[in-house]
Design a binder for these strands. Structure first.
Length: 415
RNA sequence: GUGGUCGUAGCUCAACGGUAGAGCCCUGGUUUGUGGUACCAGUUGUUGUGGGUUCGAAUCCCAUCGACCACCCCA
């Protein structure tokens, strides 16, 4: 059969396969997210990737482009319109609204869901990515905004970043609304103003000022000197908790329509990656989709793809090490029962051991262990069985340690 | 959705209208029990796919699929 008749081994467009090395990094990332979120008292939740399509079609819930052109939406066998969630916030708002009488507030929640958007893949953006979501519901206090930002900050430090590696830029939807009111902007003009702010960093200063004055807004209006009171309050709260790289940036507006208060973005300060890594903000009206009782929320979402790019660029991505610490090579088929018994004994002592069944030459067995990044190798054969003396080889350094049968467990428990 | 660059061996790439190549990897051997360094030998393939132009196409043209980059948007 020719190759043409075979299936392609390529993954679907814009999605990734997670080989052991990728999965190990993903696990590392998840553990970092989980430990930081839990340190701040956030509880983990989970939901299906499937949602009724109307969740995203509700007015004002979301950017129209995402709903109309970037969702995976299909009709199920029962005629229901179903959407693969493009983000988690509507889902968590739905969950919280459904059980609001039973959940205590302020309610701190986090999750690491995969989300889907049908769009053209490029650097830092795929059709499926995993996104840490951290949200706090039921508080209008600016301390809640500050706390959520502090979680994002702590997470960056947990991943090995220094404060100088990133900046936290804060903007304010309320500030924009005030300006719109002050200069009597019509709603459509106010929207243009928001879009212009969003694109500010992508155009020369003169062009921005020109377009700004076309909308009837003087440049002085955006002076960072007179920062909005909510932003100022949050920045000083952050300073009190040791976060010193936050600043006001009036051009931070965020894309989603549901934001109502302070919004923020974490920016990479690296000259080659000067972009927003992730962000979030306050959304006080989102649960109004479900009932009339107001329930304020504030949170952020961090994507695994962009943060991985950041960590790679900064040399902060940890080297892969296999979960198995020891590979037991089998010198000859007759030795296999002994290898298996030895592995079983080591496993009882919580050592992760993989066994080679001895089907290939010893050199090949060692190569297998090296390819799979297993740190230690030990050969089991007639000589070792007869003498009770083994050699543990570190496959990274080549260092060899002679061990008697009784010393093996303690050696691996200490390495 | 718009624009640009690019698809050649498992991987990284060369050949740019005239017989498809190198390095790494892989297989075997030097070494019938010790990889990553050495030496010898060997397999790499409908040049993404489908059309077209040409005596002749990996090379030029069209379409399509995919990758990358910049927009839009956003993580």
């Amino acid at each position: 059969m020719s190759k043409k008749d075979k299936l392609s081994t390529e993954a679907y467009k814009g999605v990734r396969d997670f080989y052991p090395e990728d999965q190990a990094f993903f696990n590392y990332l998840c553990h970092a997210c989980q430990s930081v979120a839990e340190r701040f008292g956030y509880a983990e939740y989970h939901a299906s990737i499937l949602e009724p399509a109307e969740l995203y079609k509700a007015k004002g819930a979301e950017s129209e482009e995402i709903v109309n052109e970037q969702t995976y939406t299909f009709v199920d066998r029962g005629g229901r319109e179903v959407t693969l969630r493009p983000e988690m916030t509507p889902t968590v708002a739905r969950m919280v609204a459904a059980k609001r009488r039973e959940l205590g507030f302020p309610l701190r929640l986090f999750s690491i869901p995969n989300v889907f958007r049908y769009e053209r893949p490029q650097r830092g953006r795929l059709r499926e990515h995993w996104q840490l979501n951290v949200d706090i519901f039921g508080s209008r206090s600016l301390s809640a905004d500050a706390e959520v930002i502090a979680v994002a900050h702590a997470l960056m430090l947990q991943l090995g970043a220094k404060e100088s590696d990133f900046t936290i830029k804060l903007g304010s939807r309320a500030f924009i609304d005030e300006l719109a009111k002050k200069y009597s902007l019509a709603p459509d003009v106010a929207k243009l103003f928001t879009q212009l702010l969003d694109r500010r960093a992508k155009m020369p200063a003169e062009e921005f000022e020109e377009k700004l004055s076309e909308l009837g807004i003087p440049n002085e209006a955006l002076s960072p000197a007179d920062l909005p009171s909510d932003v100022g309050e949050i920045i000083s709260l952050l300073k009190e908790s040791g976060v010193t790289n936050a600043e006001f940036d009036p051009s931070i507006v965020r894309g989603f329509n549901y934001y109502t208060g302070v919004v923020f973005e974490i920016f990479d300060t690296h000259p080659e990656n000067n972009r927003a890594l992730f962000g979030g903000g306050r959304y006080d009206n989102l649960t109004e989709l479900f009932d009339d009782e107001p329930l304020p929320g504030v949170g952020f979402g961090m994507g695994d793809v962009t943060i991985q790019n950041f960590l790679e660029l900064r040399g902060l991505k940890p080297a892969y090490v296999s979960a198995a610490t020891l590979y037991l090579a089998t010198a000859s088929p007759e030795a296999l029962p002994h290898t298996t018994a030895m592995a079983e004994e080591l496993r009882k002592n919580n050592i992760n051991v993989a066994v080679d069944f001895g089907e290939k030459k010893l050199g090949e067995q060692i190569k297998t262990a090296a390819k799979q990044h297993i740190p230690y190798l030990m050969v089991v054969g007639a000589d070792e069985i007869a003498s009770g003396n083994f050699v543990a080889r570190n496959l990274d350094t080549g260092e060899e340690t002679k061990l008697t049968q009784n010393e093996i467990v303690s050696f691996f428990n200490n390495n």
